[in-house]
């Protein structure tokens, strides 16, 4: 802080001290300030300080990875809101969805956001995979990050699938019945994995409890950890850039 600040209005000086203690640098007027800002800000720090110009062209990335992450955040926030009202019980789940739609303020639009963002995320994650494949961006040294990416695609599908059951309407229960029936053809593990997933032979309360716990805690946590590793490796390996 310059010596002139002592002559300022003391409230202004205090405010600028507080601001300066949170944000250590001003707006990026020069490359040097921009680099320091990126280095000292926790949220910006997941990025490299400099990137290849060709690597951040919108026509190259189509923003698909970033949009997937954005949708994950939107889903977490809207999902938290839905959790305030949703009751994971066979007897009350459907009514609590009705309450979300017709009683809770902005509940209907929150549920809509959650539903459409979930569909959108399945699409953006899958398209992100296709984009990375077509550009050969999985080639050394990024092989293992592709493997983490496929795990993230699987987590995304499982998150969507487990969430599908929660409204406990005809669409939910029968889609999960058909969906889990698809998995039972596997040798030995097929029927067993279906039994473990549903906690029984049919879609009932145990299935609802398991899907709920997987949906709101287990899968988001696993997904988040995998995402952190995924981003960290992107940062360490550098962006692939133009072909």
């Amino acid at each position: 802080m310059s010596s002139g600040s002592y002559e300022q209005n003391p409230i202004k000086a205090f405010a600028s001290e507080v601001w300066g203690s949170v944000f250590r640098h001003g707006l990026p007027t020069t490359d040097k300030v921009a680099a320091r800002t990126a280095l000292t800000n926790f949220f910006l720090h997941i990025h490299p300080v400099r990137v290849k110009k060709s690597a951040i062209r919108v026509s190259y990335t189509l923003c698909l990875g970033g949009l997937s992450f954005f949708l994950f955040i939107a889903l977490t926030i809207s999902g938290l809101f839905l959790m305030f009202y949703y009751i994971p019980s066979v007897g009350q789940a459907y009514q609590s969805i009705k309450d979300i739609q017709y009683v809770a303020t902005f509940g209907l639009v929150m549920r809509n956001i959650h539903r459409w963002a979930a569909h959108a995320m399945v699409i953006t994650v899958w398209l992100h995979m296709a984009r990375v494949f077509y550009q050969g961006a999985y080639k050394p040294p990024r092989q293992f990050n592709w493997v983490i990416g496929t795990a993230l695609l699987l987590i995304t599908l499982l998150l969507s699938f487990t969430g599908y059951l929660l409204p406990w309407d005809q669409l939910a229960v029968w889609a999960i019945t058909v969906g889990t029936n698809l998995g039972k053809y596997g040798p030995i593990v097929g029927p067993v994995s279906r039994y473990i997933m549903l906690g029984g032979r049919n879609v009932g309360q145990s299935a609802l409890t398991r899907f709920y716990v997987l949906h709101v805690i287990a899968l988001p946590l696993i997904g988040f950890v995998l995402m952190v590793i995924h981003f960290w490796r992107v940062r360490k390996d550098g962006f692939t850039g133009g072909l």
């Binding site: 490359d31 921009a34 800002t37 910006l44 300080v49 400099r50 290849k52 110009k53 060709s54």
Partner: peptide, 11 residues
Amino acid sequence: EETVVTFPHLV
């Protein structure tokens, strides 16, 4: 390859 600072270009 030409590079740019991440903040603000990418952000």
